[in-house]
Simulated assay, not measured.
Amino acid sequence: MPNLTYTAQGHFTNNRKMNLTICIPSEPTTGAYVVQLYNLSKKTKNGNINAVFCFFSDGTDHPIEHDKFDYRLNFDLDAIKNYDYAIDFDANAAEALFLFFHEKQFDEKDLEKYFTDLEKLYDRIKRDGNQSEDGFLKPSFGPRKIGTSLVIKMKGN
């Protein structure tokens, strides 16, 4: 069975709400996890890709291994930050690519790299399904793991 740590299950709505559970432990205490959300949606030659990048840190240098979708992440898409080159998130689209990035620190170069490779990530998910893997290589400050998942639009919304 593949390791699904850092992958997501859930949906989004026409009201621009995203409701997810992530395959990591529930937050042990309020404020223990740092979460920063970015719209990374992109126009490509094959159409638009809805994408949300979530930087996550639990303050440790260790990756998480987990087998249950225990962490709830619900947010309003209009409240997240926009990456400079992102297009608007389309709440009428059928799906969105969700990138859950675990690292002790991150910077704009991480956003740039994942934005650049969004089509490759999307094609791989369509072909192979949700997956967890090591983040793109660079000198690491911590665990540097990423879960990539397709999140669907809730039917009737």
Rank of each mutant, 00 (worst) to 15 (best):
T7Y: 13
T7G: 06
A8K: 07
Q9M: 11
H11T: 13
H11A: 07
F12A: 02
T13V: 11
T13E: 03
T13H: 08
N15A: 15
R16W: 05
R16D: 13
K17I: 12
M18W: 00
I22N: 06
C23V: 00
P25F: 00
P28W: 06
T29M: 14
T30C: 10
G31S: 05
A32V: 06
A32C: 01
V34Q: 13
V35Q: 10
V35R: 11
Q36T: 15
Y38G: 12
N39H: 05
N39D: 08
L40I: 11
K42F: 01
K43I: 06
K43C: 12
T44G: 05
T44F: 10
N46G: 04
N46P: 00
N46W: 01
N46A: 14
G47P: 06
I49V: 08
I49W: 01
N50P: 02
N50C: 07
V52Q: 04
C54F: 07
S57Q: 04
G59W: 14
G59Y: 08
T60L: 06
D67P: 00
D67S: 13
F69V: 07
D70Y: 01
Y71P: 02
R72A: 14
R72G: 09
N74D: 14
F75D: 02
D76L: 02
D76N: 13
D78I: 12
A79G: 03
I80K: 01
I80G: 02
Y83F: 13
Y83D: 10
D84C: 12
Y85P: 01
A86N: 04
I87L: 04
I87S: 11
N92T: 08
A93P: 10
A96M: 11
A96C: 15
L97P: 08
F98K: 03
L99N: 02
F100M: 08
F100G: 07
F101N: 08
H102E: 06
K104V: 07
E108M: 13
K109Q: 15
E112Y: 11
E112V: 12
K113F: 12
Y114C: 00
Y114D: 04
T116R: 10
